[in-house]
Design a protein around this nucleic acid. Structure first.
Lengths: 201, 201
DNA sequence: CGCAGTTTTTATTCTGGATGAGAAACCGAG
DNA sequence: CTCGGTTTCTCATCCAGAATAAAAACTGCG
């Protein structure tokens, strides 16, 4: 509990391994994540990983946990920095931007977590269910605020609408190519669609 | 060309294998698709698969091809059946419904194809690129029609908006649970979001 | 030097794709 | 109904690649 955070060389190596795991996980999926590939990316011999983790699954597990945590905290922070009294629909737009930024440029972990969770073995998914729920709760809260402001189309089921919106965001990781379109362009399009899509006609 | 379609027992077994491959592919991803699992689902011994396909990749390849083809044709058919002269935005709504129905209830193949393509090895993805483009072209056409009708928010980039929308649809396969919500509910929410989201403010 | 912490080397085991020899099922001709 | 050939599939096994274990070697600090 005391000094786990100290940035020793060992801690940096360990971090490199987790980062590499997220990197590979994101591109290859759960089953396709080979320790040899992770090792290569992390600039380490494959068995060295076992000094830090007792199994492949444990490593992947941590990469996913980091990802979920990062998504949660980056979005939460972005919301915290918003000026007080902002209409809920604007806060939602902030969350949309933060989620996309995290997914697309800030964190392989978050992207890997979001996109890989469904493929994980049941036991592992179970372990992250709570974190997932917590993150979802943030969004649900935002949607509820929007509804209370009267800015949500009453014909929309809030839960379903939320999942549809999150899907749009999560899927960007599959197609967005930094070389071809700007991140801001994607964010802008997503925000417009969400704003107008949710709005009461 | 002549009688490849005849429904012999052999043809049925073969189909079971492809179906099983799609089933596993959808849940486990490309790397996670084991022939032993496919065999189990198809009620066949694993080596029997090699009677029909010369390699694992060839089997997966076919499952994906079937999926892309099915998505394309189901959506195209739905559009063809729409009354002539329907506003483009309504035709788009029809496509949304057809895509969701295909993905969520009609075809594991389509869902597997749509969700797995990004994970496939380059060579294989290459082989399906054309089919993918063709399917995308249908959507692009619809969006262009909507724009020509003046129903598309001019601030939206049509290409980006389309990908965001398709993402919302494709991701439904990750979360929608037939046991908990009705398919119609999802379709309705998606249609509303698309209609209002794309509309010129 | 000497030792704790870290990493590499070497060896072992496990998993899962693939193959090949032939058994069983099927089928049409006599 | 039975025989020969063809189609379909099974069984045993192989093999490569990957995870893991064990042991050896390195590294920097006291």
């Amino acid at each position: 509990m005391t000094e786990t955070v100290r940035d020793t060389k060992s801690a940096r190596t360990r971090r490199r391994v987790v980062d590499a795991a997220a990197h590979v996980l994101l591109r290859r999926g759960y089953a396709g994540t080979r320790l040899s590939d992770v090792a290569e990316v992390a600039q380490v011999q494959a068995p060295a990983i076992y000094y830090y983790f007792s199994s492949r699954d444990e490593l992947i597990d941590e990469a996913v946990a980091v990802g979920l945590d990062r998504a949660q905290s980056l979005v939460t922070e972005a919301l915290a920095q918003a000026p007080a009294g902002l209409p809920a629909i604007d806060r939602l737009a902030i969350a949309v931007a933060a989620h996309l930024r995290t997914l697309l440029t800030h964190s392989d972990h978050a992207a890997a977590a979001v996109r890989t969770v469904p493929q994980l073995p049941e036991a592992m998914r179970e372990r992250h269910r709570q974190a997932q729920r917590d993150y979802l709760a943030v969004w649900r809260g935002l949607v509820a605020e929007v509804r209370d402001d009267g800015d949500l189309d009453p014909a929309l089921d809030p839960g379903t609408a939320l999942m549809v919106v999150l899907g749009a965001l999560n899927w960007t990781a599959e197609w967005w190519d930094p070389a071809r379109g700007s991140l801001e362009g994607v964010i802008d399009a997503a925000q417009r669609l969400v704003r107008d899509g949710l709005a009461a006609s």
